[in-house]
Computed example of a mutant assay.
Amino acid sequence: MSDSAKSKQATAPVQVPDFTLRDYSSFFLAGALCCTISHGGLTPVDVVKTRIQIDSAYKGLGIVSGTRYVIAKEGPAALLTGFGPTAVGYLAQGGAKFAGYEFWKKGLVQFAGDQETAVKYRTAIYLGAASIAEFFADILLTPLEATRIRLVSEKGYANGLVSGFTRMAREGGVRELYAGFLPILCKQIPYAIGQFTVNEFCHELVFRSMSEDTKRNLSGTSKFGIALGSGIVAGFAAAVLSHPADTLLSQINKGHGPSGSMMHRLSVLAREAGIKGLFAGLGPRMVMTAGLVSSQFLMYGSIKQALGAPPGIEIHKD
């Protein structure tokens, strides 16, 4: 590229679509549906994962052996414990997260000022957009996640979402419902970073090896394969990054740990668990998260297309 071409590229205004309120509504609906379907469908895996994290009787068990143990001990219906708060919680959180990522990514790209700067700092843009979007989404998720964990970890606590949420609110108030907000942030922000940032870079690596003509003429099968593979890798990254905080969140909502500030409780629980304890149940969660993230991106793209929503902003490096 000539010096004049480089100069023009450096000063070129950043290219961003003019998303409308209808577009953001479509992003929200697509995110809400993909997250509630994926998380709700994987409730049995999440039940087993949570039991492995907090119940000593499940120590050393994997996803298959843990599932068999739950069925033998409590019956098949126990695998659907917490389905209500999971579905409702991730309906709200998913919509806010995906729409928020599109919103903040656009804002940060515009803040960069020109195309070259946006591409140069794309990692910071991905990290910032994912983190901010997840923060606001977690305000909606936290009380429902607390209800889900209490239902899964304490047999007979309540009959379902409404009775469980009501009991927590009555007995502990807002303080109890949001007791896990800090650990949820510690879990969900790294999760979102892995989910969105790794997915973006997986797509970039694949597309960088293709010519423009090849990219324009990709078959539906090829697009599906790229989205699926990128989602699986992003899911593995999200699971590893967020698992220690996920373990601590389960412990906090079970009522474990000393009294005092949340930071003190988290630090004590982390020291007691050690590295091995913090990563207990990682195998089942990696399986679960790879399925979650890949299915979410596939559904999100399909639902957006069905709703007539525009594609997201791409700032990949050529």
Score class of each variant (00 low, 15 high):
I184M: 14
I54P: 10
K155N: 12
T221A: 14
V88A: 01
L140P: 02
L127P: 06
K276Y: 05
I252Q: 08
K49I: 14
G107K: 03
G128D: 02
L185S: 10
G312A: 15
G164M: 06
A234F: 13
S267Q: 12
Y300H: 14
E212K: 13
A112I: 12
M299A: 06
P76S: 06
L80M: 11
Y101F: 09
L248S: 11
L228Q: 12
S163F: 10
F28N: 01
A96H: 03
K6D: 10
Q195C: 08
M262N: 09
T214S: 12
F207R: 03
E74Y: 14
S4P: 05
S211E: 06
S211R: 06
E176S: 09
M299S: 01
K215W: 07
E200A: 12
V109S: 10
K8W: 12
G100V: 08
M210V: 05
Y126A: 03
Y300G: 11
A10P: 15
E171I: 07
F196T: 03
T11F: 13
V206R: 01
F196D: 07
Y126Q: 12
L21R: 08
K49D: 07
V47H: 04
E116T: 04
S267W: 09
A10T: 09
S56N: 07
I125D: 00
R285I: 07
E154W: 05
R170Q: 09
Y121G: 12
G82E: 07
I149H: 03
T36G: 06
K187N: 14
P311I: 01
E154C: 07
R22V: 07
G194Q: 01
Q53I: 00
T36P: 08
L42S: 00
L292E: 13
G75P: 10
Q115A: 10
L108Q: 04
E154N: 12
G291A: 03
S25I: 08
G231K: 05
P44Y: 00
G277I: 00
C34W: 10
R170G: 02
T221E: 10
F98M: 10
L177N: 13
P44D: 04
F279G: 02
Y191R: 10
L218I: 09
A57Y: 08
F111A: 14
A112H: 13
R148N: 07
G283A: 06
G82K: 11
M263A: 02
S209R: 12
A245K: 13
A10F: 15
Y24W: 02
